[in-house]
Design a protein around this nucleic acid. Sequence first.
DNA 1: AACAAACTGTCAAATGGTTTACATTTGATG
DNA 2: CATCAAATGTAAACCATTTGACAGTTTGTT
Lengths: 232, 232
Amino acid sequence: MAVPDVEAVMRSCPLLAGFPDTAFREVAAMARTRRFGADDPIYDRGSMQSTLCVIASGTVRITSVNAAGREATLIIFDAGSWFGDTVFSPGMPRVYGATAHEEAVIVELPGEGFRQLMASYPESYPIALDLVSRRLWSAMSIIEDDALRGVTARIGRRLLFLAEIQGVRTSSVEPVALKLTREQLANMMGMTRQGVHSRIKALENRGLLALGYGQITLCSPRALQAYIQSLD
Amino acid sequence: MAVPDVEAVMRSCPLLAGFPDTAFREVAAMARTRRFGADDPIYDRGSMQSTLCVIASGTVRITSVNAAGREATLIIFDAGSWFGDTVFSPGMPRVYGATAHEEAVIVELPGEGFRQLMASYPESYPIALDLVSRRLWSAMSIIEDDALRGVTARIGRRLLFLAEIQGVRTSSVEPVALKLTREQLANMMGMTRQGVHSRIKALENRGLLALGYGQITLCSPRALQAYIQSLD
DNA sequence: AACAAACTGTCAAATGGTTTACATTTGATG
DNA sequence: CATCAAATGTAAACCATTTGACAGTTTGTT
């Protein structure tokens, strides 16, 4: 992967959209670029740093591990997304871990510098609040699914959610390929590999998914969405 | 319930903690007080208003309903808390519904006025970002539970979460009474009344809970937390 | 080309939670 | 205080999902 243009990456990050043009020189000056291989840890739960991370390329998963060592993937972020749970809560240890999902390049901003920058350009605040609010709704909609929907619908909605994070509209008719194994999806859903298997197999038989090795393709997000709503 | 002192309610709301003393006259001037009986709707999913609501007294539940009419409670907020999902995203329809859980008095601020006020006092922004971030983590920790933990642990953690919203520290040893029926708890967890019953009965037998009619008392949050961790 | 490692497909048995049904208790109302 | 609706306790049959076990497939590596 070529050296990323740090300033271009930062300009495309929605969280920084409120910064004026002139601010991006400052942003670039304090940024640091890091490269990760697949499954390399980016930071661990409990670590005390609080940087803002922007994904220049690749994908990153946010994870949580229980005492028994079982790992749950909470979200997978794609290039252009930002993460770093404690950026807005200085002094807090990281609540979740972050791991490179595929090979990834991350541009990192020190938390303190980023917060000072926001304070210098208060126009950026309402944008950040809007974005964090929307993430809160996404999370709540998953909780809602767990409480309200059957297993097949939940798997379908989670797949659509993952596609959405990659910038795909659920109304799209274009196929979307998700790079994840049945097991990773199972871990995200709190299910077993076999349990997920039988459901996605059924979705494949309906022509809604195409299953590959380490990959799940949504043939048509819109059709999947329509099918799921018919289940409700 | 007596007429609430609007200004006092607003001063105690953490979301407004960044406003200077002088701002609270403006806040009080734009506020509107509303009273609700138990189970009265405060606003419905999809409605286009975007006010900020602060609970002067009583409790409020945030809900979601599926096509089949089954309702899931996502959160229950207590006096002093604030809610109103789209305050920070003007133009969006309400994502979730809000209903008075017990009889409640709500102080409501017009979204537009509130946002302008924040812009006038930018010191308030970092506080709001911190608070919304923390709510995001709470939501994610529930997703984590669903994926990682067994049913008993999940019920216990949810009870602790509800206590926390009421301002109770999980390290507390004082009993906390939660006003909710087995059925409401079941709806929150995506379980049946009977399923919840057998688990909380077991927790009662261990002396961790005291069960009453329409009420669940955590005898000692700290002890409950310790027991749950032992399950993991 | 051969091999190992990771991922996938599939099945029977065991488990755990839901469903269904009914008896009992509690709190509110007249 | 009598009555009723709502909330709770309990148990059996049922069903969906997990467990555990193993064979087949793909990918990448030597």
